[in-house]
């Protein structure tokens, strides 16, 4: 049984930091993709037209009821079969983005439904068209309710990027595994990234709470609080 030695970790910190950078890259890419998809899907799910509800519900149910790992494999092995050859990071962004998009659309949908009907009445009574009402009244107020759960799913998604290691994306977890193979200091390496992930989460949580206070809560609490339904994406 060996004694602990962290020196090897520090000497190879650049490997881990590069991995962390890839984690950031995948996280941001997935976040953007996820939000771009989530907003229209949320509206489609709430729509009166079955033609819009069906495909959007199918999408959400598929990505919420299957494991992220399976989704990653689906794209990692499936895309080349379709002739799309691209690197693991892009695959990860696509899979994780679609996954988080499904969870986010539910959160946004609940936020949209939580907007008091009276506000919509008032906006119409003031002469706004449905589009204007949605943009100036419904969306901002839905966002106020959805922000906290959305930041929660985002943080879970960041943790879920570690699953992308299984499709060879060289983010933080994968970098650690490779490093452990070269340096044979698994405990030091894994405990370092363990702490690293925790710090990352705490930082993101802090930023989210700060943003929530200054953009939203400061101006007074709203009556309808969305009960947090956190979706873990991995």
């Amino acid at each position: 049984m060996s004694s602990l030695y962290f020196g090897d970790v520090f000497k190879n910190a650049d490997v881990l930091l590069r991995g962390l950078g890839i984690t950031f890259l995948i996280s941001v890419g997935s976040l953007v993709l996820g939000l771009i998809i989530a907003l229209p899907v949320a509206f489609m799910r709430n729509s009166r037209s079955g033609l819009l509800r069906f495909p959007s519900s199918l999408y959400v149910e598929f990505f919420r009821n299957t494991p992220l790992l399976a989704q990653l494999f689906f794209f990692f092995y499936g895309l080349p079969e379709l002739g799309i050859n691209t690197n693991a990071i892009v695959v990860a962004i696509i899979a994780i983005g679609l996954n988080t998009g499904a969870y986010n659309s539910e959160v946004i949908r609940a936020g949209l439904l939580s907007v008091d009907k009276g506000l919509i009445d008032a906006s119409y009574a003031l002469g706004m068209s449905p589009l204007q009402s949605t943009v100036y009244v419904v969306l901002p107020n839905a966002f106020r309710v959805a922000f906290k759960p959305l930041s929660s799913t985002f943080i879970n998604m960041v943790l879920g990027t570690s699953t992308a290691a299984s499709v060879t994306a060289n983010e933080l977890m994968n970098s650690a595994v490779v490093l452990a193979g070269n340096v044979f200091r698994p405990f030091e390496i894994y405990s370092t990234i363990f702490v690293g992930y925790c710090l990352l989460t705490f930082t993101l949580s802090f930023i989210a709470k700060f943003a929530d206070y200054h953009l939203i809560s400061k101006h007074g609490k709203m009556k309808n609080a969305l009960k947090s339904s956190v979706g873990v994406s991995g």
Binding site: G160, A176, F187, Y190, F194, T201
Partner: peptide
Amino acid sequence: NSPLVVQLFLLFYG
């Protein structure tokens, strides 16, 4: 606040 995989590796190897 950390991924399950990291916890697993830490337990198994650590």
